[in-house]
Design a protein around this nucleic acid. Structure first.
Length: 889
RNA sequence: GGACGAUUGGCUCAGUUGGUUAGAGCAUCUCGUUUACACCGAGAGGGUCGCUGGUUCGAGUCCAGCAUCGUCCACCA
């Protein structure tokens, strides 16, 4: 008790988050309650309770967390804390992603910057040690940042996409897919990044608009168009649409001789293919199958030769003759010059705009190449539960069946469209950092297994796997798969996957693929896609723009709770969020408001009362002692509890927060706390406040935990308290009548309005006369205190109004504020005029509606409601008019 | 070239299945230090919901078209 009182006195006037946050997090963490097993052991959670599980989308170990991560942590922590408080077996698994290419590239850059060395200077093993060191540092930073955000992650289950356990999962998955023929090795056209010297997947491409010269070249009897003359050396097929009448004389397979071309005379074969667009250019084209996906497809269809023109460093091969060995960008002008000198350039369009493919990471221009690589076959048929299916079908079914719901649902269409256009997934990379392909070779033999072959002489495939191959296993590899662990049995499928819509394809789709294929089970029941966090002008936050907001800086300045609220409230799933510092500041103000409500409670209420947990039942048992204000606040509280729960259950976190903020500030603080200063119902005040702390805890865990322990003592922990139960609140308080106190709120507001209109200082105490039925309850004390009224006089409804007063009408009561000496009749008249005009407008609109077809066609209850509104408005109008007329001229 | 999204007071956004006179936060203006809070309190002003049609008794909400902005997808050589 002494401790608590001291604690209370120590509560600073303004909330200072930095004093509390680290201590509170340590307390949570050391309590062990982030781990659902501990919750069960200590009786906080029932062993047979339903589960709620989710995985943290593992941040890349490339650096530090940004506001997007902060927003993800906030939303997920809300769901996790909410379910934990509701008694679910709640598990939230942390982890990090090795992000193969991104991390390797970053370390390579640092290595060059600091030591002017490349990875080849160090060699594979030494370089990988560097990367691991870097990854470890990044990891430590990320873990620290997650904790700073208040994330209640079960650190005892932390995972890493490249650790031993996940390595086993990756190799197991690969082996199964390999033996089922889903994974194959083949020479296919791939996206080659000459700068990073690796392939990248289709999804990692970005299209960039480029203005280029477009050349029309003479090619025998034809004219062909190209923006890339440097690739044309090996072109020996001329392709046209079979229906193109301009070229009807040419037949498929016909060979055209004596074509003068860049390096001499060649012959070309005519190919008819429907892929050619007759309306583009001249309607004929030559093809370069080795360096273009479309051309590759044509060549495949007609079984044509394919020749490599550009090497993997981006230089021309001997086929280019005199240009051999030149970089393609240097060669282009020279090649065009030669074509010109030979008279082969018909014309040039200098303003041709087209899209070039670049690596979304690093922005290096992609050069398509044919290369022997590992692929996941998305169209291969295999048996599943007695029927033939494909990976594409599995992915489609998971969502189409509704087993996996997508929030917001419009992303479903995008998801299906992506699957429809999906090509085989190239999963091998020529980088060093990552899971090495689990395949060994010896004298033409191929060996694939989870463990290396035992006898010597085998050489492992040097390539590593696409980082998303390991991320795709994340929902179950983190739970122990391929072992059949209790965690896997208990927590899979996970309940929700919360992540950014920008990795819908990269990650969400791949997780569905992997889980459906390997486990025959969905990875998660719902996927909630959040938007990107942008700056106030809607720009992406980037270092080069200098508009990056570091979440930890904001935490330090405004408190983590304020940062969390600013990321959650005003944000809708799938839509980007614009965030400025003022928004965070406004939630800092709110945090402080809650803090000060707490200070008031501890200041005004006896510690015996505020240091006990007050239950719904306890309040329910003293119903007879409740005042009108008590009933009003309890009723509103029960509505709030139910709204907040409904919103959270439906993933409407923003609305849940808004409802809570509105209740806390505009209802509880502005009205009930003020009334408490008069009525002093400590139990209800404390009960409502404690309920608010419970309700707010998932959103703003630090300040609520701090306040809770200030009230109840540090041996209590809010995090594991029960969340307010909507049904219970409703059955206890839902039927409470609120009209009486609403009336008082209206009267006080009217007095304040009149004061403001007449510019009467708050220090000046006034008198009011209220005309009403004798049995109407008027809360004199409250009106006097909140309206700064000296005395309330009551008269009958038909008694005449006092002179020199301003009037307010509400239902069947009239209030006259005495304004002796200050009343300005012209001002009062115009005030009434204004209101009369507004009511008249309303009446005319409403009565014309009611006299029209509305009355016949609209549902009866809607009509009845409108009729009631009309009669209310009419009586109000007549009263206003009589007030107006009674004013002295 | 397709698809999707956005367009609501100065700014940032809510608005669930169409149903009172469209809400909030910030900003603005006026007043104010009443011992929880100036990171505050009280009051006020401010929107014909992008445009044009349609459906309906009734449209910010549904439909069609258009405009502007944005995002994603796409094999126009």
């Amino acid at each position: 008790m002494r401790d608590r009182l001291d604690n209370m006195k120590e509560l600073s006037k303004a909330y200072n988050p930095q004093e509390h946050e680290d201590t509170v997090y340590q307390q949570w963490e050391s309590s062990g309650f982030f781990n659902p097993d501990t919750c069960i052991d200590k009786g906080v959670t029932q062993p047979d309770a339903p589960y709620f599980s989710l995985v943290l989308p593992p941040p890349n170990v490339t650096g530090t967390l940004h506001l997007g991560h902060a927003s993800m942590l906030a939303v997920e922590d809300i769901m996790v804390r909410y379910h934990r408080m509701r008694g679910y077996r709640t598990l939230w698994i942390p982890g990090t992603d090795h992000a193969a290419l991104a991390t390797q590239e970053k370390v390579e850059r640092l290595l060059w910057h600091d030591e002017k060395k490349t990875r080849h200077d160090l060699g594979r093993d030494a370089f990988l040690k560097r990367v691991e060191q870097f990854a470890q540092n990044s990891h430590d930073t990320i873990v620290n940042q997650c904790k700073k955000m208040g994330a209640s992650l079960d650190w005892s289950r932390e995972a890493y996409t490249l650790d031993n356990k996940r390595h086993e999962a990756v190799y197991t998955a690969f082996k199964k897919m390999f033996s089922d023929g889903i994974i194959y090795r083949g020479a296919r056209i791939v996206n080659w990044d000459p700068r990073f010297q690796t392939t990248v997947s289709d999804d990692e491409l970005e299209r960039k608009e480029e203005r280029a010269s477009f050349y029309y070249l003479k090619y025998g009897p034809f004219e062909i168009g190209t923006a890339r003359p440097e690739t044309k050396f090996g072109d020996k097929y001329i392709v046209m649409h079979p229906d193109d009448e301009r070229y009807a004389d040419y037949t498929h397979g016909q060979v055209i001789e004596n074509i003068e071309w860049i390096n001499g005379v060649i012959s070309a074969m005519v190919i008819k293919d429907e892929v050619v667009d007759m309306n583009f250019g001249t309607g004929v084209m030559t093809i370069t199958p080795w360096h273009d996906a479309t051309d590759f497809d044509i060549a495949q269809r007609h079984n044509l030769d394919k020749e490599q023109v550009i090497d993997y460093d981006g230089k021309l091969l001997p086929i280019a003759g005199e240009f051999s060995g030149m970089n393609i960008s240097d060669a282009r002008d020279k090649i065009v010059a030669k074509l010109r000198s030979k008279g082969l350039v018909a014309r040039v369009d200098e303003n041709y705009v087209h899209n070039i493919a670049v690596n979304s990471r690093g922005e290096g221009v992609i050069e398509p190449q044919i290369k022997e690589q590992w692929f996941v076959d998305v169209n291969k048929e295999f048996e599943r539960n007695g029927t033939k299916t494909t990976l594409k079908t599995l992915m489609q079914n998971a969502v189409r069946s509704g087993d996996v719901s997508v929030i917001p649902s419009r992303f479903e269409k995008i998801y299906f469209h992506w699957i429809d256009n999906l090509r085989d997934w190239c999963i091998s990379r020529q980088i060093w950092f990552g899971h090495r392909v689990p395949v060994w070779y010896r004298n033409g033999e191929v060996y694939c297994d989870v463990h290396p072959p035992e006898n010597d002489g085998w050489v492992q495939d040097p390539d590593t796997l696409d980082t998303w191959f390991s991320s795709g296993l994340w929902t179950f590899s983190t739970l122990g798969w391929p072992s059949d662990t209790p965690d896997l049995q208990t927590y899979h499928p996970t309940s929700v996957l919360e992540t950014g819509y920008d990795i819908l394809f990269f990650w969400v789709a791949r997780m569905i693929l992997m889980s459906m294929y390997l486990l025959d089970e969905i990875p998660f029941r719902a996927t909630y896609l959040h938007g990107l966090v942008r700056d106030e002008q809607g720009r992406k936050m980037s270092k080069s723009l200098g508009n990056v907001i570091n979440p930890l800086d904001m935490n330090a300045l405004y408190g983590t709770d304020a940062v969390r609220l600013s990321l959650v409230i005003g944000s809708t799933p799938g839509s980007d969020l614009r965030l400025g510092e003022e928004k965070i500041a406004s939630f800092r103000n709110f945090t402080n408001k809650l803090w000060n409500i707490g200070r008031y409670v501890m200041h005004a209420v006896d510690s015996e009362t505020f240091s006990q947990k007050i239950s719904v039942d306890e309040i329910g048992s003293v119903t007879d002692d409740l005042s009108d204000a008590d009933r009003w606040i309890l009723h509103k509280l029960s509505r709030t509890v139910s709204d907040v729960s409904l919103h959270i259950d439906a993933f409407r976190f923003s609305q849940a927060g808004e409802v809570l903020r509105d209740f806390t500030w505009n209802t509880f603080a502005d009205w009930y706390v003020e009334v408490h200063k008069i009525e002093k119902n400590d139990y209800v005040l404390t009960f409502v406040f404690q309920t608010l702390l419970r309700l707010w805890h998932p959103f703003m865990p630090f300040v609520t935990e701090t306040l809770w322990q200030s009230l109840l003592g540090t041996e209590h922990m809010l995090m594991t308290e029960q969340y307010p139960n909507a049904k219970k609140f409703h059955s206890s308080f839902g039927s409470f009548e609120t009209f009486s106190f609403e009336n008082t709120v209206a009267l006080v507001s009217a007095i304040r309005n009149i004061r403001s209109t007449y510019r009467i200082a708050p220090s000046e105490l006034l008198t009011v006369t209220i005309a009403t039925n004798p049995n109407t309850v008027i809360h004199n004390d409250i009106i006097c205190r909140l309206g700064r009224i000296a005395s309330v006089e009551r008269i009958g409804l038909n008694d005449s109004a006092p002179e020199n007063s301003a009037s307010f009408l509400s239902g069947d009561l009239k209030m006259h504020v005495h304004l002796s000496g200050v009343v300005d009749f012209d001002a009062e008249r115009s005030r009434l005029d204004k209101e009369i005009a507004s009511v008249e407008k309303y009446i005319s609109g409403l009565s014309s509606r009611l006299s029209g077809p509305f009355a016949q066609k609209a549902p009866a209850h809607v009509v009845a409601k409108e009729r009631e509104s009309l009669s209310d408005a009419q009586s109000r109008l007549s009263q206003l008019v009589s007030e107006h007329d009674s004013l002295p001229v």
